[in-house]
Design a binder for these strands. Sequence first.
DNA 1: TCAGTCATGTCACTCAATGACATCACGGAA
DNA 2: TTCCGTGATGTCATTGAGTGACATGACTGA
Lengths: 187, 187
Amino acid sequence: MGRWEPDAAGRLREAAMALYTERGFEGTTVAEIADRAGVTARTFFRHFTDKREVLFAGSEELEQCMVAALAGAPPSAGPMDAIAAALLTAGELFADRRDYSRRRQAVIAATPELRERELIKMASLATAFADALQQRGVGPAVASLAAETGVAVFRVAFERWVTEPGDAKLADVMRATLADLAGLTTH
Amino acid sequence: MGRWEPDAAGRLREAAMALYTERGFEGTTVAEIADRAGVTARTFFRHFTDKREVLFAGSEELEQCMVAALAGAPPSAGPMDAIAAALLTAGELFADRRDYSRRRQAVIAATPELRERELIKMASLATAFADALQQRGVGPAVASLAAETGVAVFRVAFERWVTEPGDAKLADVMRATLADLAGLTTH
DNA sequence: TCAGTCATGTCACTCAATGACATCACGGAA
DNA sequence: TTCCGTGATGTCATTGAGTGACATGACTGA
């Protein structure tokens, strides 16, 4: 057995989710999260840059996966088709995490500070999309626009998926939302 | 003459812009801003909820103007046409503020915390758009999507306008970006 | 003249966040 | 086996954001 229990970061994540759910984000202190995880507040800040970030672990990996899917789309695919490939990949990744996603989203929706953090993650995703599109030869202006639009679709679809009662697959909601978008701009 | 100099909020805004430009957002304390404005730090927080908000005064009025334009579009206009009306109205409002907009945007772009705040203002705008579209009889899903897309256009166009060297009118950049969007989804 | 209002100042406090330094189990090298 | 370096953690002190409670005093209206 090591000197300390392993996976302090994981324990901190769980503790944070639990406390944010119970008492709300503002109602819980970093010291309380650290206590429940069996570490010090100082250690919390060694694992996460701030009190918000603890809810956004893995967002980097998600972004990388989506960008990889975008880059891997056939060269003949247009910008929005490449974006669609990225969105559908994300749809697969969340397949079995619906319950967790719901709880997490409830916490985030309830707190402006957390919504801000989520939004900047989305902005980062948009930038990554735009870069990847430019790698494919798309002009900068169109690339940014396609990227922003793609992220808008992601956000709307995710929101639908988390909100709706049924058990639709996220990938299907993504597809439906993309279809809505096409309809929007053509007539 | 009153007991205090008038327009403390205005002085705080100017002081904040100046200091954020000189020393950066993180490099300036609220106490310094308050000092330069001739008030106390406590008074700063009576006028602005936090250190970021001081750069976003007027965003509420902007949102109201744009929503009014959207609501005022002819009933025959489709969702994206109504959105376009709102964007062009904003284009007019910023006509003579390009210089200020540039300086302000430079500060915001340099600081993640401020970018987060800007993003949530955009999200608020998107929500307002979606509500206004629903008032016009547009279904909720399509309304959200059109709203998010419209805000994406706003963001991209504003970025272009602030970045480009020439002296194009914001409204024209908005039009061009909307045209790009139409091109994106049709072929 | 007086009472009430309102913006501000003052004081005390909580909590997020960070830097500096100490601790001590573990693993490898001598 | 012994010893040393490493790395994750604890401890302590400090800065700065943000808030609540209360005091002040110029202005306003009766």
